[in-house]
């Protein structure tokens, strides 16, 4: 009898730590360790002597912040960042706008074929990004595209979809086509979670469907809109597979079109993992700053709204 309380007290005190051990271990092994190694690599570089042929011609040395200085002064990385900002300025509003619109339409009363429509809009999300990019690439290429063939047959001018401004639209289109369904499901799910009494009350007060959508539904799904926006920003900053897949089809996409393509190019083509590591760290920090900056701004606005 005397032992039980003691053991109990001991167990309660240490239990949280015991439960934390697996997660902490996994975090250290598969998260902190690789990131730490990447950061370590970013402060190193290889030094070659003379012709650099044969044994001992290459050694790894401490580089200080040289890799970071190079990356930040590299106009290609900055240009890449500007390019994806332009791309994101098209993708994010269009994709989320469409997702919200579809979600609201699906949530309208008395809709027929709801399940089918939901599946049809969601389906492109299930197609891998590379396959989607390849498929659209074929549809954009002047000589094999049925769209351009029809335009030509109708005597209309054929826009070059893989060059200049249209290139951004073409790339954005792939992302919008693939991502709208996912975001729609997120928004739609939170629409379904709104209690029916709210709508009933609104209808009794004489609200139309449109007014319900604008005044009740959209404000009530604001948190999931913020969430999808957050995901979309991260996805935009990490765009890689679509431009990489389309690159061989056109002269207008360089090997360093997006920041991640530049990292890939340095790591796996130019064989300079140190420069690539430094760039990766910079991109990760920028992504973190941008996405959490947005979350913070969104949160403070919500709080202001609450206090009013």
């Amino acid at each position: 009898m005397t032992r039980t309380p003691r053991r109990k007290a001991y167990g309660v005190k240490s239990a949280p730590y015991v439960f934390l051990v697996p997660a902490t271990l996994l975090f250290l092994l598969f998260f902190a360790l690789p990131i730490g190694y990447a950061v370590y690599l970013s402060f190193r570089r290889t030094e070659v002597a003379g012709l650099g042929l044969g044994k001992g011609a290459r050694q790894e040395i401490w580089a200080g912040v040289a890799n970071y200085a190079d990356a930040l002064s590299d106009s290609e990385l900055l240009d890449g960042a500007l390019r994806i900002l332009g791309y994101g300025a098209i993708v994010v509003p269009v994709m989320l706008g469409l997702a919200l619109l579809f979600a609201l339409l699906l949530d309208t009363d008395g809709l027929r074929a709801r399940g089918f429509s939901r599946l049809a809009i969601f389906l492109p999300y299930a197609i891998p990004g590379v396959i989607a990019a390849l498929m659209w690439g074929f549809l954009y290429l002047p000589d094999v595209s049925p769209f351009l063939y029809l335009l030509d047959a109708a005597g209309l001018p054929r826009p070059d979809l893989l060059d200049g401004g249209p290139l951004y639209l073409s790339l954005a289109n792939i992302a919008v086509w693939g991502g709208t369904g996912f975001n729609m499901i997120v928004i739609y799910t939170s629409l379904r979670a709104i209690p029916a009494e709210v709508f009933e009350a609104a209808r009794i007060d004489g609200c139309s469907q449109l007014q319900i959508a604008l005044r009740i539904k959209i404000p009530m799904v604001a948190p999931s809109l913020i969430l999808t926006f957050f995901f979309s920003i991260i996805a935009t900053l990490q765009v890689f597979s679509e431009p990489t897949t389309l690159k061989p089809l056109t002269n207008s996409l360089s090997t360093t079109w997006s920041p991640l393509m530049k990292v890939y190019q340095d790591a796996f083509v130019n064989n300079d993992i140190h420069a690539a590591a430094a760039q990766a760290v910079i991109i990760a920090l920028a992504t973190l700053a941008l996405s959490f900056g947005f979350l913070k701004a969104a949160n403070s606005r919500t709080k202001q709204g609450d206090s009013r």
Binding site: D163, N251, S252, S254, T255, T256, V269, N270
Partner: peptide
């Protein structure tokens, strides 16, 4: 030479722009 890969990617980017 020891950095053909760098020369080749410089070719792809610069000549693509010039050809375009």
């Amino acid at each position: 030479g020891p950095n053909v890969n760098v020369a080749y990617s410089a070719f792809k980017d610069n000549f693509a722009a010039a050809a375009k």
